[in-house]
């Protein structure tokens, strides 16, 4: 449904995102996780045609964001980080205006507005002036706006930021209800939130995608200890032999290419890099590369989970 390929965006000299790629399947909820200023908003703004990328390509529902930007906009609903609300309009007037912008026919507009009012549970406040609503309600009006015209794709930028715990739970429930009907991209800098609502997570840090997996696997990776990546020159069987002799290894995977280089991912309880190096070199194999991806991920997770208190 959404294919993002190598998106890069510069603001003047400063690089906001670099080579961001990911894919979202139809009906899936994808979480975009990353600390503040990691490039989440930039990525979303590019996908919603708010601004073009410096380089790279993205298609949404088969439409290129650059060449068929109007078609992309027609099938996409977007809730920016600060909900774009006209504070002196009433909720229904506002939704009616957005419905017009989205080109919904006069005959269908009323039912369309009513349906998003119901989805976002705005029934009690629909005649109130938006400026007088609480933050939580404003956020819901923003969400309602993004759901107008029943878009295939809904992009939500930090939909729960600045809300109190009760409101957060409500918004999360609303998002969960979108599953299946809509393809959703949702950004957050809070790990538990992503864990609860999303099927898959893309972690962005410093403008780059550092991991893409299910929330469960990411947690496992984190809790499951060390992951060491090796690049070894030699025969695959010899590599396996060398690794099998280390008791501390929990599991490992090898992939050999035709140039005689074997790529290995080793999982273990603790740091065994020294032992790995000794054994591989001892077996007469060429150790080309040895690295661990523990640090980046853990750092980010630490950053994310300690940033804001966990909400039950």
């Amino acid at each position: 449904m959404i294919d993002v390929e190598g998106l890069t965006r510069y603001y003047g000299e400063k690089r906001a995102i670099s080579d961001v790629s990911f894919h979202v399947k139809e009906g899936e909820i994808l979480g975009m996780l990353g600390p503040n200023a990691a490039g989440k908003t930039t990525t979303m703004r590019i996908l919603t045609c708010f601004m073009p990328p410096t380089s790279g390509k993205a298609t949404i529902g088969g439409y290129d964001i650059f060449e068929h930007s109007m078609d992309v906009r027609r099938i996409t609903g977007y809730l920016p980080e600060n909900p774009p609300l006209y504070t002196d309009m009433s909720v229904t007037d506002y939704l009616d205006f957005v419905a017009k912008l989205k080109g919904i026919d006069k005959t269908k507009r009323k039912t369309e507005v009513d349906s998003v009012v119901e989805k976002a549970a705005l029934g009690d406040v629909q005649t109130r002036i938006i400026g007088k609503l609480s933050k939580g309600y404003k956020q819901r009006v923003g969400l309602a706006q993004s759901l107008l015209n029943n878009p295939k794709i809904v992009i939500l930028d930090e939909p729960t930021v600045g809300l109190d715990p009760k409101q957060i739970i409500e918004i999360r429930e609303l998002i969960k209800n979108l599953r299946g009907e809509h393809t959703v991209i949702l950004s957050s800098h809070i790990l538990p939130e992503i864990e609860q609502t999303c099927e898959r997570v893309v972690i962005i840090n410093d403008g780059r995608v550092v991991a893409e997996d299910t929330p469960e696997n990411l947690m496992l990776r984190l809790k499951g200890g060390e992951r060491t990546q090796l690049q070894i020159e030699g025969k695959e069987t010899d590599v396996k032999k060398a690794l099998n002799s280390i008791k501390e290894i929990k599991s490992f995977e090898t992939t050999a290419d035709d140039k005689g280089i074997v790529n290995v991912v080793v999982e273990s309880e603790k740091d065994i890099r020294k032992m790995l190096a000794k054994n591989i070199v001892g077996e007469g194999l060429g150790l080309l590369e040895l690295s661990t991806d523990r640090f980046t991920l853990e750092d980010i997770f630490l950053h994310l989970t300690t940033k804001e208190e966990e909400v039950a």
């Binding site: 703004r45 708010f50 920016p80 600060n82 774009p84 609300l85 006209y86 504070t87 912008l101 989205k102």
Partner: peptide, 14 residues
């Protein structure tokens, strides 16, 4: 000021 440009630019309006 309101940030509603983000709405205008992301809906099918030129």
């Amino acid at each position: 000021r309101l940030g509603t440009v983000e709405l205008l630019y992301t809906t099918p309006v030129t």
